[in-house]
Design a protein around this nucleic acid. Structure first.
Lengths: 323, 323
DNA sequence: GTGAAAGCGCTAACAT
DNA sequence: ATGTTAGCGCTTTCAC
């Protein structure tokens, strides 16, 4: 099939170990020998077989990224950025989707973990105990989950939410609605309630529903019937549903109601009106996660907690409160 | 590190080959032995090491999917569907993004190809000669590229476009614009021109530009200044730009102009107004591509050409021509 | 600085 | 039906 280290060795007139070193520890081989090996390798189109490498060294050169749903437009940019970062560090990224089901998550992790040097688990739904076991078995970085002693990337919406609250307040809003589309206690709701309260903004919570477009449609109908002048949605997709339904009901945005999303996905930038939203930088997140995992693989990341912030991106869906 | 076939063998009181067979050819081992092996494996938490497997057998159990841009919302559902299909057939999917640059594409392919049993190349920008070389080296399926003798998946917009033309015609439109956002001769333009002509619809072409939101913004301004009553955009993203700019200019959709996109991404379903678009089924595409590649790997797919159709999804962005 | 050789975990002859 | 054994391509002691 492909060209092996042996062929390169004989072509360059050296032993296989020299060829191996030429690739893994170039400083341990004499410059001119190195040169010869490199030429031979290039001429033959050689590149090391990762299977053999990993079998021998226990190292695969890949990072595993386990996410709930790649179809959520929040993730592709993250995957992309992580790929770019990892490549520069000599790694490849293997992404897998769990379809938001715990059973699939376990199975997916089992399948992927054999082929990677470490795992990034995004918003895992696994019980803490399983996470702990996993962490004992292989380098693991948790995103938005906390387990004592494990490396963690914490994405904080706090700044973005505070900016949203200031933004609404400056526009004269006082009555706001939060459309919750997340079950469980790890959600965005708590932080939002606290911050809005601190800013003296009344906050009514709808839900929890599911994070779908239709949730927004439904919530908008409820909001239109009430007194609130601003809506903060669980994410951009839900916010888009809100926008859509308001348009249908003839409720002006932002004249009658202002709308804010979360994530700053492609959806937010391209909607009509464009959506004010809270951005979590894909580049920052991906870079931090990849670096943290690589450090953990190297044994110097264990238990470290990295933080990523957020900020408000004001667009056309927010404006002065009516009246 | 992990538990090996050897440990399972001694735990079950059999030889390693029996354990191996228990996993790869269960029918060749006696039921009760099989049972014992399985229990031992389960008890120890054994699962085969893919690196060793692939080193030995030359088989990795992975399919490589090379796409131009995973951030294009068209691709995630395809990746997802392919993952689901591949998993049932005993394969894993490894996705990689080329960032639409030829240099990256070559490098990406080189990196990925060592770790997979075959490649699906989506809308490759590589010259035909390179594709041919690649096909000689490893099982390859081309999507939307044609090279004599290589397996190919052809996605045809013809039906969708014909339905769009009928749809517009039935609504009384006569003057249409196509916003071209693709360079090169493999584009969507040719088919569209032919079909619209056959339906007696005048078609003005704008561009070629780039497939971006801003392209739609720009094109909408041009269209608003003209007489056309219907716009067909290169894809949903561009169509969304058109929608956005029309809203800004106060051009009613669909009252003054009707708008049609292509791809039926999430963007189309969630826009305001919701976007009439031409759907290419992610499930069909992914299934066909995966099956074709697996057949090619098995030596019975070479040179086969599979076809996938498309259809119009009428939504709220199209309606009767004005006047 | 370089070479020889062992062995990573597994599969596929081959032998029994 | 099951066991023995030779490597797959590579890295890594250990010699020299």
């Amino acid at each position: 099939m492909a060209v092996t280290i042996k062929q390169v060795a004989s072509a360059a007139g050296v032993s296989v170990s020299t060829v191996s070193r030429a690739f893994t520890a170039p400083d341990q081989v004499q410059p001119q020998t190195l040169q010869r090996v490199r030429e031979a390798a290039a001429a033959l189109g050689y590149s090391p077989n990762p299977a053999a490498r990993s079998l021998r060294g226990g190292r695969t050169g890949s990072l595993g990224l386990i996410i709930p749903d790649i179809a959520n437009p929040f993730f592709p940019p993250i995957f992309k950025a992580m790929q770019a970062r990892a490549r520069r560090l000599g790694y490849t990224v293997l992404a897998a989707d769990t379809d938001e089901r715990e059973y699939d998550e376990l199975e997916t992790i089992a399948a992927v973990s054999k082929q990677v040097d470490g795992l990034i688990l995004w918003a895992s739904t696994l019980p803490e105990e399983r996470l702990r076991e996993l962490g004992a078995e292989m380098p693991t970085v948790l995103v938005n989950r906390h387990v004592e002693g494990m490396a963690e990337l914490r994405i904080s919406l706090a700044q973005g939410i505070a900016q949203a609250a200031e933004h609404l307040k400056a526009y004269g809003h006082t009555r706001c609605v939060f459309v919750n589309a997340e079950h469980g206690e790890h959600g965005r709701g708590k932080s939002i309630r606290e911050v809005f309260e601190a800013h003296d903004l009344s906050l009514t919570e709808l839900g929890p529903y599911d994070p779908r477009f239709e949730t927004g449609l439904h919530a908008a109908t409820l909001v239109a019937a009430g007194e609130a002048t601003a809506v903060l949605a669980h994410n951009d997709l839900v916010a888009l549903g809100v926008l859509h339904q308001f348009a249908k009901l003839g409720v002006g945005v932002p004249d009658r109601v202002s709308v804010i999303g979360i994530d700053d996905t492609l959806l937010a930038a391209t909607s009509t009106p464009s959506l004010t939203t809270i951005r979590i930088s894909a580049d920052e997140v991906a870079t931090a996660a990849a670096d943290l995992l690589i450090d953990t693989i190297a044994g110097r990341g264990e238990g470290r907690v990295a933080g990523i912030g957020s900020r408000l991106i004001p667009r056309a869906s927010t404006g002065p409160a009516p009246g």
